[in-house]
Design a protein around this nucleic acid. Structure first.
Lengths: 128, 128
DNA sequence: CAGCATCCAACCGGATACTG
DNA sequence: CAGTATCCGGTTGGATGCTG
């Protein structure tokens, strides 16, 4: 405890790094959409595909693997024929869903204001 | 109102599009960090630069312009010498700060669990 | 101090084709 | 049905150098 200020600064930076790591998980193009679609029900692969609409197989697969890797969704394979795989949020995923819903709420509430702000800003600065 | 289901589906999709537009704003690499650093105090350019640490000038500039465009921060130029520019959150930016703080909180709370989950997952699936 | 301009590498993500 | 493999274009963002 010789240099508490330094300690604090370091852990602060480390905390920021962790936060960014996590934010990059949900900051990609599809994670939030998929998490919302999962909600509190379990869904199958192509079901998610339809719901998250123009998502490609590749991206859905990658997104789900990322979420599974982080312990946010579970993947259960029923080896029937045809094969069937169910995805669902884990408790941790559900807790994230709450946060994400707040975010979505805010986005919905402020979407038009933001769009207006953008066009106003762009009118003042014509591109080139 | 012949096909209310269709109507709902369409507006739902539009809503999703809007939300994604907004999420992409804060989904980039630096916006959240800058918003947190602004908090409820006004800050100068290089001050933000130091606080958001390894951010480059270019990225800070771009991030701030994006946030200003969306009406989330204000930019005030004092023409003194040397020049001085202050950035601060608008009311809308402050409301976003609340949401973002929730997110950061969640990230902090779950960071270690997520890291553990990742290493466990990766142990099960060695690369290649 | 507060930026803009340019260049360029890395990565993200879409399209497409194929498999168990 | 539920994916994997490959290709490849656009965007993101870092490094660097210059300006008022």
């Amino acid at each position: 405890m010789a240099h508490p200020t330094t300690d604090t600064a370091v852990s602060r930076e480390e905390a920021r790094a962790l936060i960014r790591d996590v934010l990059e998980r949900i900051g990609d193009k599809w994670s939030v959409a998929v998490i919302c679609q999962l909600g509190d029900t379990t869904r199958r692969f192509n079901e998610l595909r339809r719901l998250s609409h123009p998502i490609t197989q590749r991206m859905l697969s990658a997104t789900l693997q990322g979420l599974e890797r982080d312990g946010l969704v579970t993947r259960t394979v029923h080896d029937t024929k045809p094969p069937r795989v169910d995805y669902a949020l884990t408790p941790r995923g559900l807790s994230l869903l709450d946060v994400v819903r707040n975010l979505a709420h805010w986005a919905e509430d402020n979407a038009t204001a933001i769009m207006d702000s953008r066009t106003a800003f762009d009118r003042g600065r014509p591109p080139r």
